[in-house]
Nucleic acid binder design. Sequence first.
DNA 1: TTGTAAGCGTTATCAC
DNA 2: GTGATAACGCTTACAA
Lengths: 342, 342
Amino acid sequence: MNIGEIAKRSGVSRSTVSYALSGKRPVAEATRRRIQTVIDELGYRPNAAARALKEGRTRTIGLVIPPAAQRLTDVQLGFVASVVDAAARADLDVLLSPSGGEHDRSFERVVTGARVDGVVLMEIRLEDARVTRLTEVGLPFVGIGHTSRPEEMTWVDIDYETLIARCVGHLADLGHRHIALVNRSAELVAAGYGPGHRAQLGFSRAVAERGLQGVQVCCADDAQAGRACVEKLLVTHPELTAIATLNEAAMPGMHRALADAHLAVPGDFSLTGVAARHWAENLHPPLTAADILADELGAQAVELLIQRIADPGLPHRQLLTAPPISLRESTGPARPRVGPAA
Amino acid sequence: MNIGEIAKRSGVSRSTVSYALSGKRPVAEATRRRIQTVIDELGYRPNAAARALKEGRTRTIGLVIPPAAQRLTDVQLGFVASVVDAAARADLDVLLSPSGGEHDRSFERVVTGARVDGVVLMEIRLEDARVTRLTEVGLPFVGIGHTSRPEEMTWVDIDYETLIARCVGHLADLGHRHIALVNRSAELVAAGYGPGHRAQLGFSRAVAERGLQGVQVCCADDAQAGRACVEKLLVTHPELTAIATLNEAAMPGMHRALADAHLAVPGDFSLTGVAARHWAENLHPPLTAADILADELGAQAVELLIQRIADPGLPHRQLLTAPPISLRESTGPARPRVGPAA
DNA sequence: TTGTAAGCGTTATCAC
DNA sequence: GTGATAACGCTTACAA
């Protein structure tokens, strides 16, 4: 079933069918209708490969995700969903590529075989080989996250530095003087994972500015680790009254450790951080947090990518969002765990 | 950068380059090496569209997911991850298509523009237009889930009927006589969502066989709904001592409702169901449940699809898995809430 | 208003 | 062991 077949059955040439479809040249109404009838009857659709070959574009974008094996967080999943959704609205298909680990072949295929018109790149590291590679081959791309040389690429990102600083500020306002930051996994932070890195920065800065006692720990991205991490923290830092975190996955475990220590949230202990709204609202008690609007960010990434595909010469653009903290029920006035009385 | 350029620089013809790459015709070792050098130098890769056009296959599979807007459950996410992973291992790319709702264009593009060699279809309904459409156009596909005429397609699925029946059996063995099934959302079940439907069947059957009192309710896929649902259930059915569910997303809320009613799990009330292992292990207390092995199912779906693509005439195959119940800590002996003493 | 034909980058058949 | 060349299905410049 190809355009020639449609042409034959409609009694016109192939070009007329093509033009009737694209509207790039006027076609007599009668002819157009005749062609349309045949097309509907046979359920014809132009062959994507042939069209891509001729036009030099695929109407497809690549979405490079972290290797699937390591589960996606709620926030990451939100990005994927919103990118796919935004792309569908723009009539673009999305080619999914797990990158890193054993899947470099997949990334190379997507990048270098002219399979896509552009790429949305997730989970960018401060030094990221994929960014280098994409720049090298000149394929338009937009990062969700950015590298250590942010001006050299187009990206959207969450301002973890500001957000964590704000969380600390919020806790300080409530009277907390001893605060911990529970970061993402040590591997991730060591590998130069931007959010982890910038969370450290923001935390250190805010703690210094407010003259607080701060302690920073890394924690693997799962509930067990969160539990162990907080259990340890409560012992090693008995004066702690609050935690800020960007580690969603660890949070259920953190809650559990607090409950096991008979510390009520927010009565005895405050908890806050950065998380997907959906997630924050569903915790018990609902988490006071800077709500990441994954939907918007993903859609903006696609929007920027479409612009770059249309004109790759465009100057780079950056979009840093710092959503306000939504006050919910997980933070409250400080109540010393070990005070003068102890 | 195309094959002609490589040919020119290597001083051979285009066909020789092609054969050097594919190995489908012997090429002198010296020539082969010369060509390879040029290729490495220029980072050449065959154009995917041209190859697809010529070969009549795209080396790409479609993955049709539920509309992105409605969040994926943990189990669904597991399927996506494992399908992407398995495809990458087989050097296949994955084109993601949200279907249903406003995204029918995306589905049609994938299905009908020769964009993919085959499709993995998620979230199949008992009557599913997409199955009809795929059959109609003759595109190889494999379902994760199946329709009301299961023998007419190739699929992998989870035997919810058996699993829920087993859960009921397990509860009955522990002495529970009044058990509720918390199903997925009413919309989903009404729309002929297979798992919801088969859970009903399994529940009814098991309850009848064991001579128990059973009550079935539907519940939207989120924590709030789960909480509301159980709160109501506890009031309307005060004799209830256990719940079986396949609604992961609602479970945190269900726990909360039980806690609010001062019912300890498993001391006063037992909870069990079907869930991703990851999820079950992370609940508090860990959920006694039939663990869905999403990784295996997704990989098997890809495997079956590859076979069907290679030979579309193959008889349909079906793979129904019923993983055993993993005993954890959320079920225990029945302790009547309202007994003779009350 | 419509038709003819070139060409996109491959692969594979045929010829040498 | 290697080289011309046709063909895949489409879009579009040129011709009528």
